[in-house]
Structure formats: C-alpha cells, structure tokens
Amino acid sequence: MKIEDKKRVLREMVLHRRFEERCYQAYIERKIGGFLHLYPGQEACCNGVMEAARPGHDYVITGYRDHVHAIKCGSDPKAVMAELYGKETGSSKGRGGSMHIFDAAHRFMGGYALVGGPFPLAAGIAKAIQLKGGDEIAICFLGDAANNQGVFHETLNMAALWNLPVLFVCENNRYGIGTSIERSTAVVHQHKRVAAYNIEASECDGQDVEVVYEHARKAVDHVRSGKGPYFLELMTYRYRGHSMSDSRGYRTREEEELWKQRDPIFILRDRLIAAGELTMEAYEALEKETDAYIENEVIKFSEESPEPRVEDLEKYVLADRASQQQWLTGQAA
C-alpha cells in the first residue's frame, strides 16, 4: 500500500469507527430503532478488501452489519445515518433501516437480514456480469456462522460450476450472536470447507489492513482475470455485542482485551507513527475532526430530515403502474 493510501485508509477507518460509536449513542437515545449491528473491531476487513477492489465499480453485497460496507463503496454517511433515523433522505428512503442499506448508484447491492441470504444473490450478480461481459466482480461479505446455511454450499457449487466472477469474503469473528464457532461449527477455519468445491481459498489476519489488502489483491486479481470464484477468510473480532441487546455473557472480558490489543486502527496508526508519517497529536486531531463532522453534518442532517409521508406507505411495493400499463392490461397485444 502506498503511504498516501495508508493515511487515507486510516482516516476512513476512524470515520467508520466513530460513525458506528455514534450510532450506538443514537440508539440509546432512541433515535434509532430496530436491530443495530455494529462493526468496530472488524474495520480492516472491509477496508483491506475494498482497497484491493474498485469501490463503486465492483458490486458489493453483505448481511445486516452493513453501514461501513456501504460507506466504503461510496455512500454518503449522511444518507446512511438518515436511513437509521428512518428518514425520507435515507439511503433506502427510510423503508429499509439499519439492516437494509442500499446504494445502487455506488453498486452497493444491499444489506440483508436472512443469514446466508446474500450468497446466491452474489452469485447471481456475478452471473449477470458474466452475461454482460463487464470487468466488474461481485463481492459478498458475510460472517462465519452464515456458512452453516445450505445456500452457502449450493452457491459455492454453482459459482465453481459456472466459473462466476464472485469473491466470497468471510469475516470470521468467531461468533454467531452468542454461540462461539467451536460450539456451532465442526470446522473453525472456514476456508477448509471450500476446498471440496474446487474453489481457491485462503485465510489471513483480519486485523491488519495491509495484510488483508495483500491477500485481497491476490483474490481480486484471481476473480477479475476470469479464473472463477475465490474465498477469502479474515480472522477478526467484533468488540460490541452482536446487536444492541447483547450483554456478551458468552465470552470473557479477557478474550475481548486480547483482541483489542490488536486493534485494526491502532495497528495502522502506530505503524504510520513509527515510520514518521504521523504524530499522535495529528491522530488525536483526526479523531476530533471526525467527531465534529459526524455531529455537525451527519447527525444534523439526519435530525433535520423529513419523515416519509404516510400517503406513500404503499409506494415501492410494485413497479410504478404507469410504466407497466401494457403488461398489466394487455394493451401491447
């Protein structure tokens, strides 16, 4: 990674971290409803992979822990936060919520709440790319526990069979809600499960963004050059509970502390400081600046945005009638 890119990624990761922490606060204040799944601890995963890919050009799909993935693809943090606030200016016009951020313009194909649901959708996006002949790839970010769904195996089989341009990124944070991977899954290292499908797979540290980037480059090149799917497993950890109502009784504080010693932001920060490219003062200023931006722009925008109109409750259920008239009425005959 070039030094300028490292600095930019640090800035982005700080934004991602502070954005999520601000969501936590807004949830406590009841500004955000529903389920809220936060990303702190895992920032190097999304950032490392997307640095190797082409955000806004490649198609990205993921689960419900989706805010950071959307922002990394190019979504305006204001639109993402406004979505969490349920506002008309939100990415999905307030109809989606935290688990359903979408940004078609930036090719962020969404967050989905059915564990494993995005696997075949990602393969389908790859199928469409294959039919259209573009150089994009489909990238599917999901958790470790999602791999216990049947569609995981169905999708790997089809992706290999049809040589689809899809990269599966497994963010292995060792837990599916409160069940540790050892207690749910016969194989801890997920990439081993993929070998049976003749799909290239590898595993790496998911806390060091540069390590993720190096591995992701190989993975992205593989997929983009037409060699078929790839499965990249990133070993990581989420700091907060699975969702907001999680008191983390299923794991020890010692384990959490151990992982926090390998914080993805601090690893990069300290490396830049050691290389003389950053000072601690500059880093602290960056945090403050980021918080000010979130407060003065992102939160302000979300607070001030209008709610959707109740008259529009049934908008977006089906396609706009006017554009469909000939098929609905048979007038085309």
């Binding site: 194909m109 075949p120 393969a123 389908g124 039919l131 489909a138 569609v151 169905e154 089809m158």
Partner: peptide, 26 residues
C-alpha cells in the same frame, strides 16, 4: 448453456442466483 441453464438440485440456491442476476437487469 449460458442462457439455458441446467441447474443443480438447489432450489434455494438457483432461485436466489436468478434474483441476484435480475438486480442487474437480467
């Protein structure tokens, strides 16, 4: 075979795949 696809016996999988492809206009 690219447009007339004999699928594996994976109803959830290939239905999802079709839906994903349709997001891009297929």
């Amino acid at each position: 075979p690219l447009r007339v696809m004999d699928t594996p016996i994976s109803e959830g999988g290939f239905t999802g795949l079709a839906i994903g492809a349709s997001f891009l206009g297929v």
